[in-house]
Design a protein around this nucleic acid. Structure first.
Lengths: 150, 150
DNA sequence: TATTGAGCTAGAGCCCACTCTAGCTTCTAC
DNA sequence: GTAGAAGCTAGAGTGGGCTCTAGCTCAATA
């Protein structure tokens, strides 16, 4: 890992993709795995490992984990060894949640693709037919309703 | 399609999964494909086809299409035949957007599963090893950073 | 020495998509 | 004729996750 290089908030912002505002906000919210140290002049100092944590954080966030849930996880981690089963539990919970999201999103995509196909067919036929009359075929049972919509 | 049965806002709420508040809100926002008619006493009347549209709407919404974008689409539809290419374009745009979301979400899931595996291995080994030291194997290049996080 | 740029804090503001409230009317059942 | 359920409008409130602002300090450069 080499020597731990000091990083400024600006550098961390650039490399993590988070804004300096967000970084300060995350700190206030107790979302850092390691406490953020300061220079004698009050400026924040970060290290490479913070970037690792922020990368994970960002994945958790963008898959819909709330800051509150992330805080819960990081607080366990900060307490040190011994609570790994709880941390694992939180991760597994979120894993399920993401799987759920994926399948819902896939269902949406099926409906959208169906719709796209209806419009494509309509246009290919030279607009000689009426749109949103008899459907070609449903993507699934539960999405039937979408047939009779614009 | 049978005779068009009149539906109250309560019935539509129950069958669409949207709240009565949301239905009134959608109407104000111009999100209905057909104008919502009223009984002589001022109450809203809906029909089966509105449920079809709301089902599609709900899919679009839950895949991240904004109400503004839905309005754009529905406004084209209300203008009648002739603008199908534009409607198709909007749908294709959203289709791309959803595909993007799916792949991002899948990437997140890969990271989370990796993390779960690390904790599982750790616990299986009887906690004799240190957590978040040498990683087993990365799920992908760009997620490397996540290794060195709790 | 003056300016510029980066950083600091506390706190206000924003956006979206609803959700809820207040105060009123109308329908249905008993 | 009275209670209760359902509906109506206008408008206020909510929540999460930032984002932005004001007013300040500090360090490096011209």
């Amino acid at each position: 890992m080499g020597v731990s290089v000091d990083l400024s908030i600006g550098e961390v912002a650039e490399r993590s993709g988070l804004s300096v505002h967000a970084l300060r906000f995350y700190e206030r919210e107790g979302l850092f795995a390691n406490p953020v140290r300061r220079l004698s002049n009050g400026r924040r100092v970060y290290h490479e490992e913070d970037l690792g944590w922020l990368a994970l954080c960002t994945k958790l966030r963008s898959s819909g984990m709330s800051l509150a849930a992330i805080r819960q996880y990081v607080e366990l981690a900060r307490q040190g060894a011994g609570n790994e089963p709880q941390r694992l539990e939180l991760l597994r919970e979120h894993e399920k949640h993401v799987e759920q999201q994926l399948s819902e999103l896939q269902e949406c995509l099926d409906v959208i693709r169906y719709k796209v196909r209806v419009y494509e067919d309509h246009l290919a036929r030279g607009e000689a037919d009426q749109l949103w009359s008899p459907p070609i075929q449903a993507p699934s049972q539960s999405n039937e309703d979408c047939h009779r919509a614009p």
